[in-house]
Amino acid sequence: MTWLNTGIGGHKVRDLEARWQDDVLDARPDVVSILVGVNDMGWHTIVPDGYVIPAEDFAAGYDRLLAPLAEAGTELILIEPFLLPISGTVTARDTHIDEEIRKEWRADLDPKIQVVRELAREYGAHPLAADSMFAELAATTGPEYWAADGVHPTPAGHAALASAWLRLVA
């Protein structure tokens, strides 16, 4: 069995589309697991690139990624993007994140999570409900245990994702 990880941190749906043929389709994979969406969220409105993608455009781009894989009979695992409620986080660009900004992000991310769920149904993919999983886990331990900044998993967060992924494909 061969595993390929072609994920690149910070990439958005548009970035995946630009490299999809070379990085994914040319490998003719049996299984593809995708986690994308948090970088398509409105948090980029407070950082220099200012990139924001409406849920409809996110859906269209994501659909273009999935269509050739489904046509080839590839097993799909779609991991929904997630955001944990970390207060007072300072990003790498020294921007203070308050509760109001987090609410704006959540309002932008929730429709994208719905897109991932709808595409999973449409394509018969295995959905991994990471957002609700982390919300449930954070209720007992606090969100920082799973993702110190709300979006990048800690070792415990990665272990939780891996365990959930394995349950889907077992």
Rank of each mutant, 00 (worst) to 15 (best):
residue 78 L to R: 01
residue 78 L to Q: 09
residue 78 L to F: 01
residue 81 P to H: 12
residue 81 P to M: 09
residue 81 P to T: 12
residue 82 F to L: 04
residue 84 L to N: 10
residue 84 L to P: 14
residue 85 P to D: 14
residue 85 P to L: 01
residue 85 P to R: 02
residue 85 P to G: 01
residue 86 I to V: 15
residue 86 I to S: 01
residue 86 I to H: 00
residue 86 I to W: 02
residue 86 I to R: 04
residue 87 S to D: 14
residue 88 G to N: 09
residue 88 G to H: 06
residue 88 G to T: 11
residue 88 G to E: 11
residue 90 V to K: 02
residue 91 T to C: 03
residue 91 T to I: 08
residue 91 T to H: 02
residue 92 A to W: 13
residue 92 A to I: 06
residue 93 R to A: 08
residue 93 R to N: 10
residue 93 R to G: 03
residue 94 D to S: 13
residue 95 T to M: 04
residue 96 H to K: 00
residue 96 H to P: 00
residue 97 I to C: 02
residue 97 I to F: 06
residue 97 I to A: 00
residue 97 I to K: 00
residue 99 E to A: 14
residue 99 E to I: 02
residue 101 I to S: 00
residue 102 R to M: 07
residue 103 K to W: 10
residue 103 K to G: 01
residue 103 K to Q: 13
residue 104 E to M: 11
residue 104 E to I: 11
residue 105 W to A: 00
residue 105 W to Y: 15
residue 105 W to V: 00
residue 106 R to A: 12
residue 106 R to M: 12
residue 108 D to K: 05
residue 109 L to Y: 15
residue 110 D to F: 11
residue 110 D to E: 15
residue 111 P to R: 11
residue 112 K to C: 11
residue 112 K to E: 15
residue 113 I to G: 12
residue 113 I to R: 11
residue 114 Q to W: 05
residue 114 Q to F: 05
residue 114 Q to G: 09
residue 114 Q to R: 13
residue 115 V to R: 04
residue 116 V to Y: 12
residue 117 R to L: 06
residue 117 R to W: 09
residue 118 E to D: 15
residue 119 L to S: 02
residue 119 L to N: 01
residue 121 R to H: 09
residue 121 R to N: 09
residue 121 R to D: 14
residue 122 E to M: 06
residue 122 E to T: 14
residue 123 Y to D: 04
residue 123 Y to T: 04
residue 124 G to M: 11
residue 125 A to P: 13
residue 125 A to W: 11
residue 125 A to S: 06
residue 126 H to I: 03
residue 128 L to Y: 07
residue 128 L to T: 06
residue 128 L to F: 06
residue 129 A to S: 09
residue 129 A to K: 08
residue 130 A to T: 10
residue 130 A to N: 03
residue 131 D to H: 14
residue 131 D to W: 09
residue 131 D to T: 07
residue 132 S to W: 07
residue 133 M to L: 15
residue 133 M to F: 07
residue 133 M to A: 07
residue 134 F to Y: 14
residue 135 A to Y: 03
residue 136 E to C: 05
residue 136 E to Q: 14
residue 137 L to W: 10
residue 137 L to E: 13
residue 139 A to L: 03
residue 139 A to I: 00
residue 140 T to P: 05
residue 140 T to Y: 09
residue 140 T to G: 07
residue 141 T to E: 15
residue 141 T to M: 08
residue 141 T to P: 03
residue 142 G to D: 08
residue 142 G to H: 08
residue 142 G to K: 08
residue 142 G to P: 02
residue 142 G to S: 07
residue 143 P to S: 06
residue 143 P to T: 07
residue 144 E to F: 03
residue 144 E to A: 07
residue 144 E to Q: 08
residue 145 Y to N: 04
residue 145 Y to K: 12
residue 145 Y to C: 03
residue 147 A to C: 13
residue 147 A to N: 13
residue 147 A to P: 14
residue 147 A to T: 14
